[in-house]
Design a protein around this nucleic acid. Structure first.
Lengths: 192, 192
DNA sequence: GAACATACGGAACAGGTGTTCCGTATGTCA
DNA sequence: TGACATACGGAACACCTGTTCCGTATGTTC
């Protein structure tokens, strides 16, 4: 898949991780409006160094978002073996919101913005959707989640909550009560 | 309240409404990232003319958001006389989301961003909250909405849905099914 | 240790933004 | 109609952004 042509020079390798770590920090602080200069300063590195490793700002941000989503998908896979599929589904959604609130700039990875699939995030986005769908299906089979709940609604509401939690910096209490409310709508009706 | 010092010149009065109308159009197209130049062009007016009527971009945008919220609050007041308080409550929330999706830049008016009340929107925001609370209380008294539903959660989820519907341009179908799902969580449990 | 490809830093560039300023035009009123 | 305050238009300013470029420094290799 990834053919490494030549091994990187030692300082280059070190600076690459410095840039990534700095970008994590600055992105968590400033969100998607973070500037390349802020990242360079945080990394203790020149602007040119960033561009040596990442061709564009978008490429750098995507690298970080993809890494975050990878980690989340790994969590989802682990939760797939849970003996409480309903709790696993709801816990995973909560984990995503946690991530969005603390790390920022995650909500954009969830819902595709229109028709353009040229963003480079479409691959990991599909993986994330598959991971959520697997947990959803299992939860539905267990009877904890209503059968007529579909992926588009889940993704739409999930990205909605992520965006709001990030922008408005929901407190832990507000987040838990808001999510509890939302999840109540996901459960089967008791009667009628 | 508003002491008009001198009557505006005819062209000034005409240009003021031109600017406001143009800003409506451009804001609906570009969202909060709309530029003053785009508005000036849409209005067929110079940049200086905008600044003659509105001291700052923020002031212009706030004027528009306040006007929109006023209209929405009027709708809420009308719905307060409905003989179906539950439907009235849910309808009003839907109207807000409609507005946010089509006109953009409304979600910011709902939840206050942290501690700063210096935005100039705090007054109308309080009015909006009061209007929503009135509908909520009536809906709860009628038994259509669960009693433990509180304003912070309503506002948090409402602004979440507004932001997502605006940014991701939810289709009419997606919006209605997502809201239906959300509102199901607002209703009392049938049993248990 | 010398030679050389590789990588670094940061000034410079191109393009965008909100805002100010002032010479000119225009509505108003005697 | 003339005089004058008011308002207009848009160039200019200050600042910010992502990105490019190149002289200099540094790791690597023989």
């Amino acid at each position: 898949m990834s053919g490494d042509a030549k091994p990187l020079r030692a300082d280059a390798r070190r600076n690459q991780v410095r840039v990534l770590e700095a970008a994590e920090v600055v992105l968590a602080r400033d969100g998607l409006s973070a500037s390349m200069r802020a990242i360079a300063q945080q990394a203790g590195v020149g602007l040119g160094t960033i561009y040596r490793h990442f061709p564009t700002q978008e490429a750098l941000y995507q690298a970080i978002i993809i890494e975050r989503m990878r980690r989340l998908i790994a969590e989802a896979d682990a939760l797939g073996a849970s003996d409480d599929p309903g709790a696993a589904f709801f816990l995973f959604l909560t984990r995503i919101v946690d991530n969005a609130k603390q790390k920022k700039a995650l909500a954009d990875g969830l819902a595709d913005a229109g028709v353009d699939h040229k963003t480079g995030l479409s691959g990991i986005r599909r993986e994330m959707r598959d991971a959520i769908r697997a947990l959803l299906t299992r939860a539905q089979r267990s009877g904890t989640v209503r059968d007529d709940l579909d992926m588009p609604e889940v993704l739409a509401l999930l990205s909605a909550v992520c965006m709001a939690a990030e922008r408005n910096q929901w407190s832990a209490g507000l987040q838990s009560s808001a999510l509890a409310l939302l999840f109540d709508g996901f459960r089967p009706h008791r009667e009628r």
